[in-house]
Amino acid sequence: MARLAKHTLGKVAAMLGAAGAASVAVWAVLAAPPNTPQGNVKSTKAVKFSTEVHIRADFGALDTGKRGPKGEPILARCNSCHAEHVKAPYARSVTDLKDFHVGKAFAHGTVACAACHDLQDRERLHLADGTVIPLAEVQQLCGQCHGLQARDYAHGAHGGMNGYWDLSRGPRVRNGCVDCHNPHAPKFQSYAPVLKPRDRFLDGPH
């Protein structure tokens, strides 16, 4: 079973490699210092649609459920426990998790934790071919399976953005995959719509 999964992933990666040269080019320029917890990843090379990708503040950490004096969530970095004294093996699935990991929503097919998270370093990820990548480059990992979305993203046709359409006149910052999709439950959350139109006649005078 595991071998089959690995085989499929490998195949997808190979297909992506062959088909999505453009997307790979974009991923390749997302060079950030490993485990950058916040700020944007700046693309440096002059590639098509070179932009900055927004990076979440809680990368590589888990919300402990406790709140600080200003109501800010207290985050525990993965490696503050896992680096040294907790050498627990990777859980097979979310139901095997202990302590404050419990209750983490999980709805992402049947992927196991270790399919994405690196076995040695909890604050790193690994691709299907075993290449270890920093969390900030998570898009490279998502794109292995979600090739169509990765292709659209690479061409500026998926994911919210801010800034300039004309990059010769100003920068652009884009959302990364996990800004909108929780990697553990990636379905886009439902929204309460804003600004309901008002009818001059039915909704009374203004």
Partner: peptide, 29 residues
């Protein structure tokens, strides 16, 4: 050179805007 306000507000990236005369633009793609 800036993007329209409605595009910047779109949380999903459903909107694509640009110059069609630019062969390399997102809209052209």
């Amino acid at each position: 050179g800036r993007l329209p306000a409605c595009l910047e507000a779109c949380p999903t990236g459903a909107r694509v805007f640009g110059n069609v005369l630019d062969q390399d633009s997102e809209i052209r793609w």
